[in-house]
Amino acid sequence: MDFLKKGLAGTLESGDIFIEIEKSELPGIHIDLQSKVKNQYGKQILLVITETLKEYGIDNVNVKAIDQGSLDCTIRARVTTAIYRGSGKNDYRWE
């Protein structure tokens, strides 16, 4: 999927994660993660974001993630939504 515009999803509420994805000039996935549990769960959060992007075959993006203690399922949901919004597609893969 291609990013036509910035894809935004999520909020800054406790337990949620705010995700912003946009096209990058540089190759690869670049994630800027802010999280109050970065020390304990930072690696896991980065892994879930990267895996979700890869599931949709996405590369060459900048991701801004502001986490407020979200669980893996929330992170996946927010990243997926941001992908669809940024690419303008709506052929959702319902689980």
């Binding site: 020390n39 304990q40 769960y41 690696k43 896991q44 669980l71």
Partner: peptide, 10 residues
């Protein structure tokens, strides 16, 4: 099961 396993604090 819900939150995963935390890494050790620095």
């Amino acid at each position: 099961k819900i939150v995963g396993i935390a890494e050790a604090l620095p």
